[in-house]
Write a protein that binds this DNA or RNA. Structure first.
Lengths: 217, 217
DNA sequence: TCGGTATGAATGAACG
DNA sequence: CGTTCATTCATACCGA
C-alpha cells in the first residue's frame, strides 16, 4: 500500500514556537489503538474471505437444492408432475441489477422503463415485466419501513478507557456460520467508522437486528 | 474516529527534560498513514462484503436463503437453552398469549395491536414486533391450509408443563422431494456467462403465469 | 448423530 | 400504494 506519496502534505501540523517544535502528536497507546483497529479490519477481511470460500464451496458441493430456473417439464421417474415453479425467483445477477436500478434511480419505474429492465434482465434468466413491476413495488413498500437497528453504538461511558479488546480469535471458533450477518448490518459496518462496533460482531456478541418491512402505522 | 478521549491517559509516554516536554510521538502524517491503512482495509472489507452478498444472492437463486442473526442472551422461561440463536423462539408463556389473542381477536392483527402485544410479550421474553407479526401471519396461513394427509395418530401426549393448548394442527407437509434437479446447471450458470442459451431451453417452453392488472401506459 | 417435523422468516404475487 | 396471502427457505427441536 502506498500512501506515502501523500505524506508530504501532512506536515502542516507542525508548528515551531520559541525554538521548540510542536507537533500534534499521537502517543503510543493511540498508535496501538489504531493498530488494533487495523488488526480488526484485517481480521474481518480474513473472515470474510473465509466466508466467501465456504460459500463458494458450498455451492459447489451441496449446491444441492437449487431448482430455481424453471426446471424442465420433463419429469423423470415417478411420473409425478414436478412442473415448473410458480413463483419467479430472481437470479443473483438479476437481483444485482434490480438493486442497482432501485438505488440509483427514481422510485417508480415507468412502464417503458420496466420494459427495458425486463429486457435486460431476460438476458440473465427467465423473467417477465410483471415480475419486474412486482419487484419494484415490493422493494419500495418494504424498504419503506425497513430499518436496521444497528447495535453496538458507541458507548463511551467510562471516558478515557475505550476498551478495545480485540479478541481476534483465530478461526478456531467454529466459523461455520459465524458472522453471516445480514447485509444491512454489514453495510452498517462500513458506514460506521467506529470499529468497536465491529468487534462486537466479531466477538460474537452481535446484537439484534430487527425489522423488515411490515409495520407501517 | 475519536481517540481524543484517550489522550488523557496516554501521556504516560511523556518525559520532561530540561524544562522541555518530550513525548514519544507520532506525527499527523503517520497518523494519516494509519488512517489510510484502515481506510484501505475498510474498502477491502466492503468489497468482500459485496462479494459475499452476491454469493448469497446466488445461493438464493439456487435455493438458499440468507440468514440473519438475532440473538438473545437471556430468554429463559421456555425451558430452552440460552444460547444466542438466530431465530426467535416463543416461550411457553408467549405462545399462550399469542394463541389466545389469535383466537379471540382473530383476523386482523393491526399494527397498533401488534405493538401492544409485543409490549406485553416482551415481559415474558425477548421479542420484537416483527416476531409477532410473523407469528400471526404464519399462524393464520397455516391454520388455513389444513391438508390432512396424515391420520393424526394418537397424539395425546401430556408433557410436564401442558399449559399450552396445542391446536389440532397436523399439516403433514410430506416433503416430497419435488423439483430436485441437477444443479450442475446452476453452477455452470455463474461460471458461464452465456447461460442464456441454456435458459432458453430451460425456460423457453413455459411462461410463468403472468397477467395482472398493472399495465397502464 | 442423523433424519424428520414444526415453525420463524423472507418474499413474489395479489388484493382493495 | 399499503396490506395481506401463499409459498418456500432455513433452523429449532424431537425421537430413534
Amino acid at each position: 500500500m502506498e500512501w506515502d506519496q501523500q505524506q508530504e502534505n501532512q506536515l502542516q501540523n507542525q508548528r515551531e514556537e520559541n525554538g521548540v517544535m510542536y507537533v500534534k502528536v499521537m502517543t503510543d497507546e493511540q498508535l496501538e489503538t489504531l493498530r488494533k483497529q487495523i488488526a480488526v479490519y484485517a481480521s474481518i477481511c480474513e473472515q470474510l474471505v473465509e466466508m466467501h470460500k465456504n460459500l463458494t464451496a458450498h455451492q459447489d458441493l451441496t449446491g444441492g437444492r437449487l431448482e430455481n430456473l424453471y426446471c424442465d417439464p420433463l419429469m423423470t421417474s415417478g411420473g409425478h408432475k414436478i412442473s415448473a415453479r410458480q413463483r419467479w425467483t430472481p437470479t443473483a445477477v438479476q437481483l444485482q441489477i434490480l438493486e442497482r436500478i432501485f438505488e440509483e434511480g427514481s422510485g417508480t419505474p415507468s412502464k417503458q422503463k420496466i420494459k427495458e429492465i425486463t429486457s435486460e434482465l431476460s438476458q440473465h434468466g427467465q423473467i417477465s415485466e410483471t415480475n419486474v413491476y412486482n419487484w419494484f413495488q415490493n422493494r419500495r413498500a418494504r424498504s419503506k419501513r425497513k430499518q436496521v437497528v444497528v447495535a453496538a453504538s458507541s458507548n463511551n461511558k467510562n471516558g478515557a478507557e475505550s476498551e478495545v479488546e480485540i479478541e481476534v480469535e483465530s478461526p478456531k471458533t467454529k466459523p461455520e456460520n459465524l458472522l453471516l450477518l445480514p447485509q444491512a448490518q454489514q453495510d452498517a459496518c462500513f458506514q460506521n467508522p467506529d470499529i468497536t462496533s465491529q468487534l462486537h460482531f466479531l466477538g460474537g456478541s452481535y446484537h439484534i437486528y430487527d425489522q423488515h418491512a411490515w409495520q407501517g402505522e
